[in-house]
Design a protein around this nucleic acid. Structure first.
Lengths: 153, 153
DNA sequence: AGTTATTTGTTGCAAATGCAACTATGTCAA
DNA sequence: TTGACATAGTTGCATTTGCAACAAATAACT
C-alpha cells in the first residue's frame, strides 16, 4: 500500500505555472532596463509604448488594449505627466475623456526603449532558436485569443 | 515628411508583453477556482503544490524551486499553518530550517485542486490544439532555461 | 578557538495594489 | 425635460508587496 495517494498533478508541467515562470524571468530582464535607466514601472512603460506606437489616445483605450486596471493606469498617467513624459487634454467632443500624448521627452524615451526592446527580443530569439520563438509567439497568441476574449475581464 | 519618427517597436509583438498577457489571462481562470473554493492565494497554492508533489521540504527550497520571494513564502506558510493545511517542524540536523509538510486536510486540497488543474490543462490543450500546446510548452521551457538559470535572481 | 560570512526565517515600513465609492459627463428612451 | 443607466477618470481605504534590517544557526577561514 502507498502512504500518499498518487498525485498525477505536476506543477512543473502545469501551463499556468510555466507561463508565469517564463513571463517573470523574461520580463525581469527587460524591466531592469527601464527601471534602472528611466525610473519607469511596467505600467508606465506600457502606457508610453501604446502612445508611442498608436499615437494620442485616452487612458480607457489603453486599458482596453493592454488589459491594465483603470486605477493603475490613472496613477501611471499622473506620474508620467509629472515627469514630463506626456500631456493630457480634455477631448472637445467628449469632455469626460482625456487625450494623452507623448511629449518630446516622452517620445525620446519611447524610441530609445523601443530599440532596447527589439535588441532584447532578437537576443531571445537567438537564445532559443527562431523556429521555437515563432512557435512560442503563435501559441501565446492562440491562448490570449482563447482566454483573453472569452473571459474579457 | 513624417511628424513622428518611425517607431518599429510594436508592443503587440513584444515577447515579454505577450508572455505577461497570456500568463495573466490563463492564470486568472484557474486562480478563480482555488481562490473561490479554498480561499487560497497563488503563492499559497504553489507552496501546497510543491509539498504535495515532492513531499516535505523547507520554505527556502520551495523558494528556490518556484522562484518565490522569501517574504512572500514566509507569510504564505504562516497562513497555511493557521488554516491547518500544513505543519512546520524544526529540522534536527540544521536548526535554522523548518521542514514543512501537508496535513491530511492539506493533502486533500492538493488532490482536489490537482484534479481541477489537470482538467483545466486538458481544456487549454483542446482549445488551442495539442500540437500548438506542445510547442508552447517546449518554447516556455527553453525560455526558462535560458533566462531563469542564467540570471538566477 | 575566534572571527567573518552565509543561510533560514521573521518583521518594520514605505510603496504599490485593487476594489468600491464618488464626480462629472454623456446616452438613451419615455 | 426628466430619469435611469453607462462611461472616464479620481480618490479613500484596507490589503499586499518588496526591500532592508534583523536574529539565530551554521559554515568557512585563519
Amino acid at each position: 500500500m502507498r502512504d500518499t495517494p498518487r498525485p498525477d498533478f505536476d506543477l512543473d508541467a502545469f501551463m499556468p505555472y510555466l507561463l508565469n515562470q517564463a513571463a517573470e524571468h523574461v520580463s525581469l530582464g527587460f524591466a531592469a532596463t527601464y527601471k534602472a535607466e528611466y525610473g519607469l514601472t511596467r505600467t508606465q512603460w506600457r502606457v508610453m509604448a501604446n502612445l508611442g506606437r498608436f499615437g494620442a489616445m485616452s487612458a480607457a483605450e489603453i486599458c482596453r488594449i493592454s488589459h491594465i486596471e483603470k486605477t493603475r493606469a490613472s496613477r501611471a498617467v499622473a506620474q508620467l505627466e509629472a515627469e514630463g513624459y506626456l500631456t493630457r487634454a480634455r477631448a472637445s467632443d467628449d469632455r469626460r475623456r482625456e487625450d494623452l500624448a507623448l511629449t518630446e521627452a516622452g517620445r525620446d524615451v519611447y524610441i530609445r526603449l523601443g530599440a532596447r526592446g527589439m535588441a532584447y527580443q532578437a537576443d531571445m530569439a537567438a537564445k532559443i532558436g527562431p523556429e521555437r520563438f515563432a512557435a512560442l509567439e503563435d501559441g501565446l497568441r492562440a491562448l490570449i485569443a482563447a482566454y483573453g476574449d472569452a473571459t474579457d475581464d
